[in-house]
Simulated scan of single mutants.
Amino acid sequence: MRQSSNPALVAAWATVPEVATAQKRAEDAVKLRRQFPSGLPPAEALRAVQDEAIATFRDTGKWPNDFAKRAATAHADALVWDAEVVALRRAEAELQYEAESIRDDMAPDVLAYLGRRLAEILTAAKDASTTLGDVTTAEGAIDAGGDALDAWRRLTGLVTDLRNVRAAQWHVLRSVAREDERALLNRWAAQGHGEVRGIRLDDVPAHVREAVRSQSYSIAQLVWLAHSGAAYVPTSFDNLQADVTAAEEPETYDDRGPLRDMSPRVTPIPVPAQPNTSRDPRPFLD
């Protein structure tokens, strides 16, 4: 079970009751299996009775009169124990698998929730930054006091919220991805993809690109994202892949190779030659 203490992720999964129910059932199955009394498989239980009878015969020379009854009882009890412990192990494995499958199926809903949460964070950050005006440091906010100081404090809390949403986003995307897809996700995250769309990464300020790559945000990066209108949460691996492709495509290209001048070419109409009137008439006179 993929657990996380990230409050943004916990809140996101809480919006999907099917996940909470499946996870609870899987956890209960683990508890039942762990609390089940220890015992021996049927073959081992029967062998224990046999070993005891042989030891008695070795010491006394007498075979136990109740061997058959004890052997049958031990084997029957062990069969009952073994049947239930096998069923509990199956229940644990199957319910965990089902819980993971439900999480995978519901991942787009959770990512959509994180997208809405991001929008709320950025709206609040935009309002707070407007209140700050020209204040760009904590010292400046303290000196200004009043609304500016309150706005700075709100932005500080919103930075933490932004980090949690981004961490939750990548957690979900990696959790539901295949192994080859996870490798791509890690590469894209390192390049700074997956957080802004509609603009090329080269057009994003360097300090914002670095914050995206390291997942280490500050108020400056939060405010830029809030005002850019480009921040988003991908709703699936395919959605992110399409955005990465769009962001990396050249602005202008020609499928046949280098750019060519495709403007119409005008071919001048040739001027017909003038007739030659200076030919010597003498050959015709001979």
Rank of each mutant, 00 (worst) to 15 (best):
Q3F: 14
S4Q: 12
A12N: 12
V19N: 03
A20L: 13
T21P: 02
A26V: 02
D28E: 11
K31T: 09
L32N: 04
R34N: 14
Q35F: 03
A43Y: 01
A45N: 13
L46D: 10
A48F: 00
T56Q: 15
R58Q: 10
T60F: 03
P64F: 07
D66C: 04
K69I: 05
A71D: 03
T73P: 00
A74N: 09
A76N: 14
A76Q: 14
A83I: 00
A83C: 08
E84D: 10
V86A: 04
R89Y: 00
R90Y: 00
L95P: 05
Q96K: 09
D105I: 10
A112M: 04
G115S: 02
D127K: 09
T136Q: 13
T136Y: 06
T136E: 13
E139G: 15
G140N: 03
A144T: 06
A144P: 05
D150F: 08
R154W: 01
T160N: 03
T160C: 03
D161I: 03
D161L: 07
V165T: 12
Q169Y: 04
H171D: 15
H171K: 12
V172H: 11
V172C: 11
S175N: 09
R187T: 07
W188M: 10
Q191W: 10
G194P: 09
G198T: 13
R200M: 02
D202N: 14
V204C: 07
P205Q: 10
A206N: 07
A206T: 14
R209Q: 14
R213D: 13
Y217P: 00
Y217F: 15
S218D: 10
I219G: 01
Q221G: 13
L222Y: 07
W224H: 06
H227I: 01
Y232I: 11
V233D: 10
V233H: 06
S236R: 02
S236F: 09
D243S: 07
D254Q: 07
G257K: 07
T267A: 11
P275G: 04
R279L: 12
D280G: 04
